[in-house]
Design a protein around this nucleic acid. Structure first.
Lengths: 345, 345
DNA sequence: CTGAAAGCGCTTACAG
DNA sequence: CTGAAAGCGCTTACAG
């Protein structure tokens, strides 16, 4: 290597890696040599030798979905602070692809995986051969087989539904049930919705539960259309994410329903743009920064623990951000949105 | 390695890499051995030996901005088809960070870089020591120093402005000038705007040119506020991206201006959600899929060409998607948006 | 504080 | 069709 530009290989290595025991003078001499020769250490070689690559993967259904895009941004930043680089995998929410990633599609290249599954089942984790440290996000896979970060979805859905009840809404619909995904986020949010209604002495009307294939704009728009066809249509709708809510909003406004006067709308995720839609969208806002931080921290703790550590659960905070879609322009203040019901204390 | 599970190292390698000259029987025997031992090839070692990592980086200002999120999705998919994995860098649009990435922050780890710069200057490319293949996106850096993919921004801006002129608008404002960025996208779009006006015999009123710090929602909202304070406010506004347009829309609607009756709005980028806002947003829609494909293709061609190849320019198509924000509900058809003026033929 | 050597786990000419 | 060996470019005990 650039050894003959001054001293020995060892010394160069010491300088490059900022180790001790090098005279200041030698250090500058080596630095200059590196500069002159345009030397760049080969990271693949370093990885091979160190047994660690400094790469982690983030696997999400689709990176362009606002929630995942925002999360990706935070994970990339958080990882960078720990000296790690993030590479992106897209599962499309397909079970087969999700299994592939959990099984380790890039053997021994990545040091860890942060994974937001949609369809993964417990048995996929039990079968797991790959030993890459894993942190699961959001969707809870039963069995406690891996580290997991999420907010309390049941409680959050209760908060959202409770908000609508407090506003005096009587027929509260929900968009986002996915009956096929027996376990998971949808299920927990539906549970929270049901509990809130029951607690308030409401009956649960199954016709007000609209299911969807995916959590996209078009699904929300279509589901809302179906709800409006009921002979006794809803006066409020709780959507399991903001995209569904925007889709529903579109349907409502294009049919000249007023929001919130005729139908109040609540979303989930609090994506960036929900502050700027018309009306601005009331939404459950998970602390995404905290989620990203917890995920990276848990991953690092796995990396630094010898052997298998017992899996950990971490719960992130959330809050309900109240905006025009439930309370109208009346309370529109200068602030972008008032806050109510913190996730935990 | 798993050699003693059957034959020799060479044979195992042949099997793993799907080479010829292995009996079917041997092949299955080796496969079984691999399975039994749970063997995973070490990719770092392979990279070191092959001199190629199969990793490419995508550097964008922020991964959560809808345009870049959508682009990232397509680049990741396109790269995956070529057997490459994408890792994400965020520059925040800061010149110093952009220089860092162009200089090669991960020496010899990535095989190539797809880079969407905001602040990079010609001299940053001239000084470049790093030899990693590079493809620039969007922002054109003069000097023809690297491969480059973009749409014709001048022409696209002309199309957008021309659309407003055809609709009979007289005072057409623009949001998105960035006077400090002397060269670049903003500049070209402003140029297209000016030409369209001049061609139509309009005078250019500098008070109708609103500049912004960044291309975010809040910048659009603020710029629109400023334009509305003019004693002769605009009856149309062309925003240099959809986020600016949504911010402007928010300001307009919250002050009870009607879109498009009072003010027509055109955006740029045609992000997913612009089909579902109220009103839906007329926007210049670059062919993002084509951009991603061209970018990856150019990168691969650099990888496969021995020595330095002379830089190439590739132009992607665009179209103007006309929606409610310029023509109102009247023409709302069943289709998500009609199309006008293809980018090129 | 520094030098010479081994080894991380692959792949690939080179013989056989 | 297969075996034994060299080498990718680092880092790191091990001597000195």
């Amino acid at each position: 290597v650039a050894a003959r530009a001054g001293v020995s290989v060892k010394t160069v290595s010491n300088v490059v890696n900022n180790y001790q025991h090098v005279t200041d003078e030698t250090r500058t001499r080596v630095r200059r040599a590196i500069e002159e020769l345009g030397y760049r250490p080969n990271l693949s070689a370093r990885h091979l030798r160190r047994g660690r690559s400094g790469l982690i993967a983030l696997a999400v259904p689709r990176i362009n979905l606002p929630y995942f895009a925002e999360l990706a941004r935070l994970v990339v930043n958080e990882a960078a602070e720990q000296g790690f680089t993030v590479l992106i995998d897209q599962t499309e929410g397909l079970r087969d692809r999700e299994r592939l990633f959990v099984e380790g599609i890039r053997p021994q290249l990545i040091d860890g995986l942060i994974f937001s599954p949609l369809a993964l089942g417990q048995e996929d984790l039990t079968d797991r051969h790959d030993r890459t440290p894993l942190v699961l996000l959001g969707e809870k896979v039963p069995g406690g087989l891996a580290d997991h970060v999420a907010i309390d979805n049941v409680k959050a859905a209760r908060t959202a539904t409770g908000h609508l009840i407090e506003l005096g809404r009587k027929r509260i619909a929900v968009i986002g049930d996915r009956p096929d995904a027996s376990v998971g986020t949808s299920h927990m949010r539906l549970e929270g919705y049901s509990r809130a209604l029951t607690d308030a002495g409401f009956e649960i009307d199954p016709r007000l539960i609209a299911n969807v294939e995916r959590f996209h704009l078009s699904d929300g728009a279509e589901a809302m259309s179906r709800l409006l066809e009921l002979k006794d249509p809803p006066d409020a709708v709780f959507c399991f994410n903001d995209l569904l809510a925007l889709g529903a909003t579109r349907t409502l406004l294009s049919r000249s329903f007023r929001i919130p006067e005729d139908v109040a709308v609540v979303g989930f995720d609090d994506m960036e743009q929900s502050k700027y839609t018309t009306p601005t969208l009331t939404s459950i806002s998970p602390d995404k920064e905290q989620i990203a931080r917890l995920a990276v921290t848990l991953l690092m703790s796995q990396l630094n623990s010898e052997g298998a550590r017992s899996p950990r659960e971490a719960e992130a905070d959330y809050e309900l951000v109240v905006r025009e879609s439930t309370v109208g322009r009346g309370v529109e203040l200068t602030a972008p949105g008032s806050v109510e019901n913190p996730g935990r204390t």
